[in-house]
C-alpha cells in the first residue's frame, strides 16, 4: 500500500482537471515572475552590460539568441519525454503537453535562427552562413515542423498523438548524431576561423544578465506551455461536466458585465 500511496501524485498529474485547476492558481505568479525577469534581463543586457571589445553593441543580441536557442533545444527533449510517457503509461495529459510543446518549440527555433541571422550581418557581413550551429538549428526547425505536420495529418487524435510521439523519440536519438555530423561537416569544409565569444570566457558583467535572461526564458517557456496545455485540455475534455460548468460560468460572468 505504501508504494501505491507514493505514486498517487503521479496519477493525479495525469488528470487533466487537476492540472487545469492547479496551474490556474500558478498562472498570475508565473506571469509576474516572467515579466519581471524579462524586463530586468533586457534592461541589464541592453543598457548596462559593457559592450564587447570586438563586436561592439551587436553582441547584445546574445541576450536573446542564446536563451532562445537553449529553450528551443530543451523543448524538443521535453516534447519527446512527454510523448514517451504518453506511449508507456497512456497518460492523456502527456500527449496534450507534447502537442503544446511543438508550436512553442518551432517558434523559438525560428527565433533562434532569426536572431542568429541578424547577429550575423554586423559580425560576419552576411545574414546567412552555413555555420555548424545555425545549420543544426535549421534541421531542428524541420524536425519540429515534421512533428507538427504529422500530428495534424491524422483524423483520429489518438493516432496523431502516438505518431507524433514516435517521431519525436526517433528525432531525439537523432539530434546528437545530427549535431555531431554537422559539426564535423563544418570543420571539414571550412576551418572555424570566426568564432563568437564562447560563454565561459565571458566577463561576469556580461554573463550575469545572460543568466537572468536564461532564467526568464525558462519561466516564459513554462508559462506558454501551461497556457497552450490548458486551452487544449478544454478542447479535448469538452464533454466532461467540470469543463461544461466552467464554460457556463464564464458565459454568465460575461453576460453580467
Amino acid at each position: 500500500m505504501a508504494s501505491s500511496k507514493g505514486w498517487t501524485w503521479f496519477y493525479r498529474l495525469g488528470s487533466p482537471r487537476w492540472f487545469y485547476e492547479t496551474t490556474g492558481r500558478w498562472l498570475p505568479w508565473l506571469g509576474a515572475v516572467t515579466l519581471l525577469l524579462i524586463s530586468i534581463g533586457l534592461v541589464w543586457g541592453l543598457g548596462f552590460a559593457p559592450q564587447d571589445a570586438k563586436q561592439g553593441n551587436s553582441f547584445r543580441i546574445i541576450y536573446l539568441h542564446v536563451p532562445v536557442s537553449f529553450l528551443a533545444l530543451a523543448g524538443y527533449y521535453l516534447m519527446a519525454i512527454a510523448g514517451a510517457i504518453g506511449l508507456v503509461w497512456r497518460m492523456k495529459l502527456s500527449y496534450v503537453v507534447m502537442k503544446s510543446a511543438a508550436p512553442i518549440g518551432a517558434a523559438l527555433t525560428f527565433l533562434a535562427l532569426f536572431t542568429g541571422a541578424i547577429w550575423g550581418k554586423p559580425t560576419w557581413g552576411t545574414y546567412w552562413v552555413w555555420d555548424a550551429r545555425i545549420t543544426s538549428m535549421l534541421i531542428l526547425l524541420f524536425l519540429y515542423l515534421g512533428v507538427l505536420a504529422l500530428q495534424y495529418a491524422f483524423h483520429s487524435q489518438e493516432a496523431g498523438s502516438k505518431a507524433g510521439a514516435i517521431l519525436a523519440l526517433v528525432g531525439t536519438i537523432n539530434i546528437p548524431i545530427i549535431y555531431k555530423s554537422v559539426d564535423w561537416w563544418y570543420t571539414l569544409h571550412q576551418p572555424a576561423t570566426i568564432k563568437l565569444t564562447s560563454a565561459p570566457s565571458m566577463h561576469p558583467d556580461m554573463f550575469q544578465p545572460l543568466l537572468v535572461m536564461i532564467a526568464a526564458l525558462y519561466c516564459f517557456y513554462a508559462l506558454a506551455l501551461i497556457l497552450f496545455t490548458r486551452a487544449e485540455i478544454l478542447r479535448r475534455e469538452r464533454d466532461a461536466t467540470w469543463v461544461r460548468d466552467l464554460a457556463l460560468q464564464a458565459e454568465s460572468s460575461r453576460e453580467n458585465e
Binding site: I139, F142, L143, L145, G146, A149, L150, L167, V170, G171, N174, I177, I178, K180, S181, V182
Partner: peptide, 9 residues
Amino acid sequence: IVVIPLYTP
C-alpha cells in the same frame, strides 16, 4: 517532411 531531417547525417 518527416524523413528528410533524419537523413542529414
